[in-house]
Each structure stands twice: as C-alpha cells, then as structure tokens.
Amino acid sequence: MHDFCFTIPYGLILVGGGIFGYLRKGSIVSLAGGVGTGLALILAGYLSLGAFKKKKNSYLALILETVCSGALTWVMGQRYLQTSKIMPAGVVAGISSLMTLFYLYKLATGGNHISPKAE
C-alpha cells in the first residue's frame, strides 16, 4: 500500500476535526492544529502521489508525514494522559500512532515500491 492512499484521507479527517472542534467549542487551538497539520499532510500526500506518477519516491513527503503524525501522537497522547478523554485526544493519538508506525515502515522499506514499466 502506498503512503498517499492513507495520508490524504488522514489529513482530511484532521481538517474536519479541527473545524468541528472550532464550531462546537470555539477552540482556536483545534482549528489551527487540526487544519494546519491536516493541510500539511494533504500537501505531503499530493507530493508523494505526484512523485509516484513519475515513477519516483518522495522521501521529503514521507519524512513530513512521519514528523506530522509523530508530533500529533506525542501532543494528543499527552493530552489524553492528562484528561483521560477518548474524544478527541485518545482517538487522534491512536490513529496518529498507527500512521507513524506505517510511515516508519515505509521509510525502513524504501518508500513506495515502484513497479517496473511493463512493455
């Protein structure tokens, strides 16, 4: 599975969650954190998709994805430990930790596997 297949939906979920947090509680932190991180992940996903279409790997995108998801795992994990609230801290920390492990796996195995051109 390619990283962009999960990164773009993951980014969209974060953008939606940030907007939802702002609309529901008026939280500027939710808006900035969710939308900012989500847009960075969507950008990284599109960079990776563009590189894949050119039969290349984008390690810059993969590193950006890893850093964003790792930071979210840390921040939301800390928030969950402080508040014990499943929504949103526990859910975002859980999803982000899975995504971080996925990105680390992709980095360790050489990124997206490009199949040789069939002729």
Rank of each mutant, 00 (worst) to 15 (best):
D3K: 08
F4V: 01
C5D: 15
C5K: 15
F6P: 01
F6I: 09
P9A: 03
P9T: 08
P9F: 06
I13V: 15
I13T: 14
V15Q: 10
G16N: 12
G16H: 13
G18M: 07
I19K: 13
F20Q: 15
L23G: 08
S27M: 04
V29E: 15
V29A: 14
L31S: 04
G33M: 05
G33A: 11
V35W: 03
T37P: 02
T37A: 13
A40S: 09
L41P: 00
L41V: 09
L43C: 06
G45T: 02
Y46A: 01
S48T: 01
L49D: 06
L49P: 02
F52M: 04
K54W: 10
K54F: 12
N57D: 10
S58R: 02
Y59P: 05
L60A: 13
L62W: 11
I63P: 03
A71G: 14
A71H: 14
A71C: 14
L72R: 03
T73P: 06
V75P: 06
M76W: 13
G77D: 05
G77I: 08
Q78R: 12
Q78S: 11
Q78W: 11
R79L: 12
Y80K: 02
Y80F: 14
Q82R: 09
T83C: 00
S84I: 00
K85W: 09
I86L: 13
M87G: 00
P88M: 04
A89R: 01
A89L: 02
A89I: 04
A89M: 09
V91D: 03
V92S: 01
V92A: 02
G94D: 04
I95S: 01
I95G: 03
S96F: 03
S96C: 03
L98G: 10
L107K: 01
L107E: 04
A108K: 06
G110I: 01
H113E: 08
I114M: 08
S115K: 09
P116V: 11
P116K: 14
K117P: 00
A118T: 13
